[in-house]
Computed example of a mutant assay.
Amino acid sequence: MPKPLLTVWYNTRCPVCDAGINHQKRRLIEAVKAGSVEFRDINFEPEALSAFGASLEDVRRRLHATDTSGRLLAGADVAIAVWRITPGGGWLASLFGNPIALPLTRFAYDRFADVLYAWNRRNGHW
Results as ranks from 00 to 15, higher is better:
residue 56 L to E: 09
residue 54 A to E: 05
residue 43 N to G: 07
residue 47 E to K: 13
residue 50 S to T: 13
residue 28 L to Y: 00
residue 17 C to I: 10
residue 24 Q to P: 00
residue 17 C to S: 14
residue 14 C to R: 08
residue 15 P to M: 09
residue 12 T to P: 14
residue 53 G to N: 04
residue 58 D to F: 08
residue 51 A to I: 04
residue 26 R to Q: 07
residue 52 F to A: 00
residue 24 Q to T: 02
residue 30 E to H: 08
residue 11 N to H: 13
residue 3 K to M: 14
residue 54 A to Q: 09
residue 15 P to R: 03
residue 35 G to N: 08
residue 24 Q to G: 01
residue 20 G to A: 12
residue 45 E to R: 11
residue 27 R to E: 10
residue 27 R to K: 12
residue 24 Q to A: 09
residue 52 F to M: 01
residue 7 T to L: 07
residue 11 N to G: 07
residue 5 L to C: 03
residue 13 R to M: 11
residue 54 A to R: 13
residue 23 H to V: 06
residue 1 M to R: 08
residue 47 E to I: 00
residue 5 L to I: 09
residue 33 K to C: 00
residue 44 F to G: 12
residue 58 D to H: 12
residue 31 A to D: 13
residue 2 P to W: 02
residue 17 C to D: 08
residue 53 G to D: 06
residue 32 V to W: 00
residue 39 F to C: 06
residue 9 W to D: 01
residue 13 R to Y: 09
residue 1 M to Q: 09
residue 18 D to Q: 14
residue 56 L to Q: 04
residue 50 S to R: 13
residue 16 V to T: 14
residue 36 S to V: 15
residue 9 W to L: 08
residue 42 I to A: 01
residue 30 E to D: 15
residue 25 K to C: 04
residue 20 G to Q: 12
residue 19 A to N: 12
residue 49 L to T: 09
residue 46 P to S: 09
residue 43 N to Q: 10
residue 27 R to P: 00
residue 25 K to S: 07
residue 10 Y to I: 08
residue 37 V to P: 05
residue 21 I to V: 15
residue 31 A to R: 12
residue 49 L to F: 10
residue 38 E to I: 05
residue 56 L to N: 04
residue 29 I to Q: 03
residue 43 N to P: 00
residue 36 S to I: 14
residue 22 N to M: 06
residue 3 K to P: 02
residue 15 P to C: 06
residue 53 G to R: 07
